[in-house]
Design a protein around this nucleic acid. Structure first.
Lengths: 232, 232
DNA sequence: ACGTGTGAACACATTCACAGCT
DNA sequence: AGCTGTGAATGTGTTCACACGT
């Protein structure tokens, strides 16, 4: 029903909390779809794979949105978290590098259940430019600045080979894009004020290998200690 | 030249350090390719996008592999980090879900410059089963247990739709796989002793949106505070 | 009676700054 | 003289346990 008075809300939500809010949001949306109206921190924590104290502390950073003795109203929490994450507005995304990965990203429909809109697909390869992917024409990378301006792109996704990534990042930054999601296996250099996040398959595999080796090595003392751990 | 005496090496490398070792390794391999023999913490830190104190503390957890007044021998460090991460042995990987993303993963050649071998591709869709992707035949998911056993799979990659992910995870676990990399947007439930890492596009976008909104909102005070931040 | 919200204790991670080795 | 390795200081994140409101 989303009708309670808007809360004052403190500044400065911890980074670790921000990283978990999308997980809570997804769990809440699933509950909403199932028609659940209210949920306790214990149950929501279970669905999100964290412990309940952490969940309560996280939510407390957004304001006092629960009811003691009862729990949280699902619909209201969905709204509050969405608003906090900036999902009540639409973000325009451009993807550069329409190889296998770029295509996978372009076709990935459920972009967090709304909040994001793919505005353009760009590539340098004349073989790829002009093709239609996910009902969008792939345009040449030379149009990057124009596309960013005309479509109001605020998030740039880099899915190019490693060698091209820094150049694309530079052009994004130059064009005024201050949020970049990088899938290329390189460390990007960007000026202050630009926010880069990276997703790196081989790093994740290497971390898994490290723990797997630990389990095989030591086996005995404190072997299964890191069970169920997730990316943080 | 890899010839110095093997160091004792302490137990228990901090998780945050483990997550950065692959980044250092990649930077070092690039240096090695360029023929650099020796590097200071300052320079390596620059290449890896961290500060030098952090880099030195990280490396100190592996042992005393530097030379005061000089720096680190590139080749030796590459070897030590590789060994620590378990990359001196080969890990057999099975990918389940050969959609756009699964194909992208299968074709992603540089699997951290060796250490990982794709042993099998599996899918439930009869339309996809039997096709050849990245020079491997896609096999039906029903063969999961057999493939895990026969190919010695130790890392399972889940690239299925959200609805199928938990079922696949259960089968991996049942078959004895204790390392899982999950690309499906769900929280996986696994028993203790199983290590799950997740990669989630929409979570990354939502975190970017949060910071972008902050920059737009507050703008003035402490606006560009989170510049250049990366996934940790 | 129940479950949230939160101070206090603890654990982990980063940064500083310099002693100690080459 | 220069750069590593590391204690000490600081900052961040997690968990505990219970007071408080409903």
């Amino acid at each position: 029903m989303i009708s309670r008075p808007p809360r004052p809300r403190e500044r400065g939500i911890p980074e670790a909390t921000v990283a978990r809010l999308p997980v809570y949001l997804r769990a809440l949306q699933a509950l909403q779809d199932r028609g659940t109206a209210t949920i306790s921190s214990e149950d929501l924590a279970g669905a999100a794979g964290v412990n309940s104290a952490k969940l309560r502390k996280d939510l407390s950073h957004l304001g006092s949105y629960g009811t003691r003795g009862v729990g949280y109203e699902v619909e209201y929490l969905v709204y509050q978290i969405s608003r906090e994450l900036g999902l009540t507005q639409d973000w325009s995304v451009a993807i550069v590098g329409i190889g296998n990965l770029g295509r996978a990203l372009a076709n990935y429909g459920g972009f967090g259940t709304r909040g994001f809109r793919i505005a353009a697909l760009l590539d340098a390869d004349p073989e790829v430019v002009g093709r239609s992917v996910a009902s969008l024409d792939v345009r040449h990378i030379d149009n990057l600045e124009e596309v960013v301006r005309d479509k109001g792109v605020s998030i740039g996704v880099i899915a190019t080979p490693a060698g091209s990534a820094q150049g694309v990042a530079d052009r994004f930054v130059e064009a005024g894009v201050t949020s970049i999601l990088n899938f290329a296996p390189v460390v990007l250099n960007v000026p202050d004020g630009v926010d880069v996040r990276k997703v790196d398959l081989s790093i994740e595999l290497q971390i898994l290998a490290f723990h797997a080796q630990r389990r095989a090595d030591g086996d005995g003392p404190g072997a299964a200690e890191r069970a169920g751990l997730e990316v943080t």
